[in-house]
Every structure is written in structure tokens, then in C-alpha cells.
């Protein structure tokens, strides 16, 4: 890896009561990189993401983003610095329309402190069009299908204009064509310079998309390498892929 990393995690430890969810996690993500995060259920992937995005505070270790320590920073400030995420189980703002869901990050991040939201509305509509949700802009988020909820989840993360996008199983439950659609979108985003961390169980997607893959098991990094190296790694096969 050349140059300073965009995100680096150093010796991260997270415990829930006695249970060690993450132990001594150490990783770095370069600007513009596409990183895949795999591992069995309960291996700590989402916990790691929650620590990075600020919803959980680690017991030990440090998180550096763009050269500054953000370990204790509240989640909303991290979003403003450019870390955006989607949730594994979609968490839409159910009482709002799809368009309004996007207006929240637009109001609070990109268009903060502006009185009129006409520019923000256009930006929200453009994002919805990009995600194929334009026709549902006025629909209530609570009435969307699973597929549309996942798209909304990503669209809302993008509305925060991230530099680092963390996609937590954005493709779970999607059909083959829809997976291709989301992958293509993430690729386009990456080409514009957005760093992407992808947590995914759909191996075909994560292996094709990622430049580098990290495999977690029981709160530890057990392997790291290119997708090809990972498929061949005996540790990964034992813990996750299945021999």
C-alpha cells in the first residue's frame, strides 16, 4: 500500500459483558480502495463497522480517519467527515417519504446551514434516479419492498456524500440481476474516488468487487489477501467457505 491510509484501525478491542467480540483488530484501508470483509455470522464484521461508524465505543485501540483519531467522536460527526454506511437490516425513517429519507443526510451533512432546500431536493431526486427509485420518491418508506429498502439504504448513505462508504450486506435477499445492478453502482462510485468497504455473504459479488479481502472469525482477522488468495487459503476455507 502506498501513501497514507484513509482509515486505519489499531489494536481494536470490543467486549460485550464477558464476550470478546473483537480482539486486537488491526487494519488499514487506502484511499480509493475496494475492501471486502467476510467471515461467518457472529465473527464481528458488523461490530467492527459499528465501531468505525461510531455507534459503538471500543474498549481499547484507536481508529484513525484521514490522519485524525476519531475513536471517541460521535457518529454524526464521523458522517460529516465522510464516513457513511448502510445497515444490514434496513433502517428507513418509516414515517417519511423516500425523498425525505434522503433529505435528512442532505440537510445535516451536505447542505448544512442552508435555509432553502431546493438544491438538496434536486440532489435527492438525482440519487433516487440513479438507484432506480425515482418513481417511488413520494411513497412512504415503510411501504417499500425489501429490495427497494436496500436501495434506499444505499441511496441515503450516498446522500451524505461519503469519502468512505461502508456497505453492510447491501445485497442480501436481492436477485441476480439486482446484485449486478448494485455492484455496478458501487463500482461507479468507486471510480469517482469513493473508498468502499463491503461486507457481504454473496461470495461471487465480494470476490469480484474487492481488490483485497479480510476474513474475520471469532473477533480476529484470520486471513487477508487478494480474492484468489482467499479462496485458496485453508484457514478461510475451514472457517467460512467450507472445504
Amino acid at each position: 500500500m502506498n501513501g497514507a491510509p484513509l482509515l486505519s484501525v489499531e489494536g481494536l478491542v470490543k467486549r460485550f459483558a464477558g464476550f470478546v467480540a473483537l480482539s486486537e483488530i488491526r487494519l488499514a484501508v487506502a484511499p480509493g480502495e475496494r475492501l471486502g470483509l467476510i467471515g461467518p455470522n457472529g465473527s464481528g464484521k458488523t461490530t467492527l463497522i459499528n465501531c468505525v461508524s461510531g455507534l459503538l465505543r471500543p474498549e481499547q485501540g484507536a481508529i484513525l480517519y484521514d490522519g485524525r483519531a476519531i475513536t471517541r467522536m460521535p457518529a454524526f460527526e464521523r458522517t460529516r467527515l465522510g464516513i457513511a454506511r448502510s445497515f444490514q437490516i434496513p433502517r428507513p425513517f418509516r414515517s417519511m417519504s423516500v425523498l425525505e429519507n434522503l433529505m435528512v443526510p442532505l440537510d445535516y451533512v451536505a447542505h448544512r446551514g442552508q435555509l432553502r432546500d431546493t438544491g438538496a431536493q434536486d440532489e435527492a431526486m438525482a440519487l433516487l434516479a440513479q438507484m432506480g427509485l425515482a418513481e417511488k420518491a413520494q411513497a412512504f418508506a415503510g411501504s417499500l419492498t425489501q429490495v427497494d429498502l436496500r436501495k434506499l439504504e444505499l441511496a441515503r448513505a450516498l446522500a451524505a456524500r461519503p469519502k468512505l462508504l461502508i456497505s453492510d450486506e447491501a445485497m442480501a435477499g436481492l436477485s441476480g440481476a439486482e446484485i449486478e445492478e448494485v455492484l455496478a453502482l458501487l463500482w461507479r462510485l468507486n471510480e469517482t474516488g469513493i473508498t468502499v468497504i463491503m461486507i457481504e455473504h454473496i461470495m461471487s459479488a465480494v470476490m469480484r468487487f474487492s481488490q483485497r479481502v479480510i476474513c474475520l472469525d471469532a473477533g480476529k482477522i484470520i486471513a487477508e489477501g487478494t480474492p484468489t488468495q482467499m479462496v485458496e487459503n485453508p484457514e478461510v476455507r475451514r472457517a467460512y467457505l467450507g472445504a
Partner: peptide
Amino acid sequence: WIGRGLRAVRDNEEAAESCGVPTL
């Protein structure tokens, strides 16, 4: 914008925080 943020808090506080809303 405060009203929209408060509604986001009511609907899902963690998602609101992740959208840049200073919930507290």
C-alpha cells in the same frame, strides 16, 4: 431542519445519527 431531524430520531435513532443528525 430541526423538525426533520427529530422525526428521524423518532423513526430510528441510530440511522439518524449515521445520517449526520446530532441526535443528543
